[in-house]
Simulated scan of single mutants.
Amino acid sequence: MRRARPGVASRGGLTSVAAGGTYEEPKDLPRLWHVTLSVSGAQVPLPDLRRALEQLAHDHPFLLTSRYATDHAEIRYWEEARDLHDAAAVALRLWGEHRQSAGLPPWEIVGLEVIDRETYHHRIAEGYGPPPATPVGVHPF
């Protein structure tokens, strides 16, 4: 159950502020984080890897794009989390937790980047960030 601050009434998704009061957004609301996870290991057949990454995309609906080769892959997606630590923790578990259900190879995580939405859009605007994930989906390098 949520508790409202004195002088603030909440009805569903709307918040009323008492006359003369100001509303401050709670600091612990989830934010969006752009995650790039890089994995690599022994070579596997491309059709098997593609099938596994497609299953991962089905299991993890926020998956934007995956790029892959026989011995490495890069997965990019948006994660909703309270802070960077939570987003990174989820990202570091992603490959291992879905390894059996998606049929992913026993590769290790070799890279992780987690940036907030504002930084992601700033990089794109400046022309030095990762290109927007188009086309969305699973594609070879």
Rank of each mutant, 00 (worst) to 15 (best):
A4I: 00
A4Y: 00
A4T: 13
R5E: 08
R5D: 06
P6T: 02
P6M: 00
G7A: 01
G7Y: 02
G7L: 01
G7W: 02
V8C: 00
V8K: 00
A9K: 08
A9W: 06
S10K: 11
S10R: 14
S10P: 02
S10E: 11
R11L: 10
R11P: 00
L14S: 03
L14F: 07
T15S: 08
A18D: 06
A18T: 03
A18H: 04
A19S: 10
A19G: 02
G20N: 01
T22M: 05
Y23M: 04
P26N: 09
P26A: 10
K27V: 09
K27W: 02
D28P: 03
D28Y: 11
L29N: 09
P30K: 05
R31F: 06
L32A: 13
W33I: 01
V35W: 12
T36R: 15
S38K: 09
V39M: 12
G41C: 06
A42T: 12
Q43E: 15
V44H: 12
L46Y: 05
L46M: 11
P47R: 10
D48Q: 14
D48V: 09
D48W: 13
D48A: 14
L49R: 05
L49P: 04
L49Q: 11
L49N: 07
R50G: 14
R51W: 05
R51Q: 13
A52I: 07
A52C: 08
L53W: 11
A57E: 13
H58Q: 14
H58W: 13
H60R: 15
H60E: 15
P61S: 11
P61F: 05
L63T: 14
L64E: 14
A73C: 10
E74Q: 12
I75G: 03
I75D: 00
I75M: 08
Y77T: 10
Y77G: 04
W78L: 14
E79Y: 06
E79V: 12
E79N: 10
E80N: 10
R82I: 14
L84R: 15
L84M: 13
L84C: 11
A88D: 05
V90K: 10
A91C: 01
R93L: 10
L94S: 02
L94I: 01
W95M: 09
E97N: 09
H98I: 03
R99W: 02
Q100A: 15
S101A: 15
A102I: 03
A102P: 04
L104E: 04
L104G: 01
P105M: 03
P105I: 03
P105V: 01
P106A: 12
P106Y: 00
W107T: 00
E108P: 00
E108D: 09
I109H: 00
G111M: 08
R117D: 15
R117P: 02
E118F: 01
E118P: 01
T119I: 12
T119V: 13
Y120H: 14
H121N: 12
R123N: 13
R123D: 08
R123I: 00
A125Q: 13
A125E: 13
E126Y: 02
G127V: 05
G127K: 07
G127N: 08
Y128S: 06
Y128L: 07
G129P: 05
G129V: 02
G129Y: 04
T134K: 12
V136S: 10
V138T: 11
H139S: 09
H139W: 15
H139V: 06
P140W: 04
P140H: 05
F141R: 14
F141N: 04
